[in-house]
Design a binder for these strands. Sequence first.
DNA 1: AACACTGTCTACCATCTGGTAGAGAGACCT
DNA 2: AGGTCTCTCTACCAGATGGTAGACAGTGTT
Lengths: 206, 206
Amino acid sequence: MSSPTVRETSTRQRILDAALDLFGSRGVDAVSLDEIAREVGVRKQTVLYWFASKDELLDAVLEEVAAELIVVIDAAVRSAEPDPLQRIDAVVRAVFRPAVRRPAMLGLVRELTRLPEAHADRLRVRVQPLVDRCVEYLEQEMDKGHLRRADARLVVGLAYATVTGIATDREVLRAVGWQPTTSGLRHLRDELRAFLRAALAPPAPI
Amino acid sequence: MSSPTVRETSTRQRILDAALDLFGSRGVDAVSLDEIAREVGVRKQTVLYWFASKDELLDAVLEEVAAELIVVIDAAVRSAEPDPLQRIDAVVRAVFRPAVRRPAMLGLVRELTRLPEAHADRLRVRVQPLVDRCVEYLEQEMDKGHLRRADARLVVGLAYATVTGIATDREVLRAVGWQPTTSGLRHLRDELRAFLRAALAPPAPI
DNA sequence: AACACTGTCTACCATCTGGTAGAGAGACCT
DNA sequence: AGGTCTCTCTACCAGATGGTAGACAGTGTT
């Protein structure tokens, strides 16, 4: 099909990347095809050549987000420690860097709520198995007493909300006086880990 | 000035309300003045009569959000128990209902990150004192050993992110199979409270 | 009766939006 | 050389957007 000729940073891919960043950081409706094209250094009609419509472009972007999210999280989940708290910690560490570096990514996930259901479903369906696996795992560990007893489904949602919120809501961090320096980043990550660990740990440790 | 003649739901106020809901739920850029006007049952030019421009309307909306947020949170903070965990619990309970009932409210706060700084500042400046007071309070309680020792500023940010995220990210809740029924709501609220309590409680209780 | 003020409206306008039609340049194939 | 295919472009277009100008009706005020 559209197998690349030489460079892998094909026009198509560059459009996808630019669209992800713009959609995620400023909102889908607020970003015009002209703007995406300008960002890539190309005309709007070139964008429409690769993606028949804005809708189709958005679908492709969501597909990419799903793929990246799945890769990052799945890898972290698999290669982690046996202790659930450490395993969760590994996921947070793995997610944190890309999330803060590229807030558009999670920003786009957040954007889902504002999108027509058809689009939202496209991403949700892909991520769903991952969520279900997480829930199942948490339930097992709760049963074993390794995690605080709670509704595993909602705990997944709550933990996700915490991570996403802190990674995307820059204004909130500004309001509490946080600075986006390197050490600030590390500090934030560590506090986030401690926060989640405390929220998930069983009430009476060992 | 624009003191209402008879009904308090003046055109101006109805425009503000509609704008808040639309801006907050769908994004500022994605909502047109025509749409707001249609929602109110009036022509676009009437909107522009009350607010000279979309920017000015947005400013007024942000001002209203700030006022409401401050009232709700401040009241909960003041009228609460002496124990910090119970006090936090009271705040969560107080914020939760309006937040879930009118997600546009917190949605608009989230929207700040996407807005020009001038607008973001307008709200942040108003909420800042409240944040500072919260931080100070948490620090005191941490010193007394009533709360888990942590960076109080970031803890405020994290707790806020959790509440806002769970209240506004409907898609996430759908993904974990949550249903917006009455009992579902209560259940969600209780899990949220337990989650935050665990995240903030000191490691060795009593 | 004349006037001014208030609030809503109709009539426009320049600009931007997503999208169509099709030209043109280069690469590849025969 | 001729033809086809791939990719990017210019030229448009219909509709929406934020905003201006000003008409018009109702309500006091004098």
